[in-house]
Amino acid sequence: MDGDPVTTSDHDLIREVVSRYCRGVDRLDLDLVRSAYHPGGIDHHTGFDGTVDEYLEWVGAALRRLSGTMHIIGNHLAEVSGDVAVSETYGTAVHWGEPADDPRRNFTTGFRYVDLMTRVAGRWAIRERWAVREWTRSDAGRLIAKEGAGPSGARDRTDPLYLAQDIARRLT
Rank of each mutant, 00 (worst) to 15 (best):
I72S: 14
I72D: 04
I72W: 10
N75A: 13
N75H: 15
L77W: 00
A78V: 09
A78Y: 10
A78I: 01
E79R: 11
V80G: 02
G82Q: 05
D83L: 02
V84T: 15
S87K: 03
E88H: 07
E88I: 09
Y90G: 09
Y90N: 09
T92G: 01
T92W: 04
H95D: 09
H95E: 05
G97H: 06
A100P: 01
A100M: 07
P103K: 08
R105K: 10
R105Y: 04
R105M: 06
R105S: 10
N106D: 05
N106F: 08
N106A: 04
F107C: 05
T108L: 06
T109M: 13
G110K: 00
F111H: 02
F111K: 00
Y113D: 02
V114R: 12
V114Q: 12
D115M: 00
D115Y: 01
M117P: 00
T118P: 00
T118G: 02
R119H: 14
R119K: 15
R119W: 15
R119T: 05
V120Y: 07
V120M: 03
G122E: 11
G122P: 14
R123P: 07
W124D: 12
I126Q: 03
I126E: 06
R127Y: 06
R127I: 01
A131T: 10
A131V: 12
V132P: 00
V132N: 03
R133A: 07
W135K: 09
S138G: 06
S138F: 15
S138A: 11
D139A: 14
D139E: 14
A140R: 09
G141M: 07
G141F: 09
R142V: 01
L143R: 08
L143G: 03
I144H: 14
I144E: 14
I144K: 11
